[in-house]
Amino acid sequence: MISNNGHRLAFHVTPGHLPAIVLDSGGGEDSSYWNDLVPQLSKATGSKIITYDRAGLGDSDAVKGPWNVHGAVSDLRAGLRRLGVTRDVILVSHSQAGEVATYFVREHPRWVSGAVLVDANLPPFYTDAQIARIVAVYTPQIKELKKQPSTRRNRQLIATATNFGPVHHAYHQVSWPKSVPAIVIVSGKTPFEDSPQDAQHWRDAAAAFTKAGPERTLITAEGTSHDIAKDEPELVLDQIEQMVSTRR
């Protein structure tokens, strides 16, 4: 348990050598999302494996108010500093964790050797028009969610929706440092299985991100849902191994 800004966060560490692999899950998910992959990664790479629960999820304390990506970056930074892992880090980030990764590598490019972005939220996706579409679709769903029994996952999703527009207008302007290599895995179905227009924009954003800098590779996981790590764990494992091998 690591303290930061008045709350405690749960970090889980599998011993190993550098580069260290830090697995960060998507919105509403805690570190258990990666449970099946951790032992395979440890065996395949010998790397130190770190998972953690972002504030309000798993065994970590909740933080009041809207979700704040800069607070999440601060939490990850505090945890890695406490663990003595401030170089040769490979970030593996799913969905919402892509936002944490983007801001983190901008602040600490020398800490991070590379990243594997697993159907991650990427800045090119969040155009003004796309944000407006998302807010219109999810506003009634969030209203219904507020009527349901309060759970950690529900509270996290509500917190994310509270300030969605301004947060993502700002995120759209952010760029990934050219010095940090990235493998981008985009799902065939994407988070928008019922909206071909939004799904195509998601894939286009992944392609635009990949083309915007050196040492970026785009992998399309055909036929998978947003949960690529659950649908095709071997694909994710292979790409992490690939990133580890290039950083040694």
Score class of each variant (00 low, 15 high):
Arg54Val: 00
Gly56Trp: 01
Ser113Ala: 15
Ala120Asn: 12
Arg110Tyr: 11
Val92Trp: 00
Phe104Gly: 05
Ser47Leu: 02
Gly58Ala: 10
Val112Asn: 05
Gly71Glu: 12
Leu80Gly: 05
Ala44Glu: 13
Val100Cys: 08
Lys43Ser: 13
Leu117Ile: 08
Leu117Pro: 04
Leu83Asn: 08
Val112Phe: 09
Ala62Leu: 07
Val89Ser: 01
Lys43Thr: 13
Ser95Asn: 10
Ile90Asp: 00
Ser47Gln: 06
Ser60Gly: 02
Asp75Trp: 03
Lys64Ser: 15
Lys48Gly: 05
Asn68Glu: 12
Ala101Trp: 06
Ala62Val: 04
Thr86Gln: 15
Gly71Ser: 13
Val116Ile: 11
Asp75Thr: 02
Glu107Leu: 13
Ile49Cys: 06
Gly71Tyr: 04
Ser93Met: 10
Ser47His: 03
Val69Ala: 13
Ile50Gly: 01
Ala55His: 08
Gly56His: 02
Lys48Met: 15
Phe104Glu: 04
Ala62Asp: 13
Gln96Phe: 14
His70Phe: 12
Leu91Val: 03
Val100Asn: 13
Val73Asn: 05
Arg54Gln: 12
Gln96Arg: 11
Ile90His: 00
Gln96Tyr: 12
Asp75Glu: 15
Thr51Pro: 08
Ile50Pro: 03
Leu83Asp: 06
Arg110Cys: 05
Asp119Ala: 10
Trp67Glu: 10
Asp88Ser: 13
Gly84Lys: 12
Arg82Asn: 13
Arg82Lys: 14
Ala55Glu: 04
Leu83Gln: 11
Gly71Val: 00
Ala44Asn: 11
Ser93Trp: 00
Ala120Ser: 15
Ala44Ile: 04
Leu80Thr: 09
Val118Tyr: 00
Thr102Ala: 14
Val89Cys: 08
His108Asn: 14
Thr51Gly: 07
Ile49Thr: 07
Leu57Phe: 02
Ala62Ile: 01
Leu83Tyr: 06
Asp75Ala: 10
Ile50Cys: 06
Ser93Lys: 00
Leu117Lys: 10
Ser74Glu: 14
Tyr103His: 15
Lys64Thr: 14
Val69Lys: 05
Thr86Cys: 14
Val63Pro: 07
Asp119Trp: 05
Arg77Asn: 14
Glu99Phe: 07
Val69His: 04
Ala101Phe: 10
Thr51Trp: 05
Ser74Phe: 03
Val116Cys: 09
Trp111Arg: 08
Lys48His: 10
Val105Glu: 09
Glu107Arg: 15
Ala78Phe: 08
Lys64Val: 10
Arg54Tyr: 02
Leu57Lys: 04
Tyr52Gln: 03
Trp111Leu: 11
Asp61Pro: 04
Val73Trp: 07
Arg82Asp: 13
Arg106Val: 06
Tyr52Lys: 09
Val63Ala: 08
Ser95Gln: 06
Asp88Pro: 01
Val73Ile: 12
Gly65Glu: 09
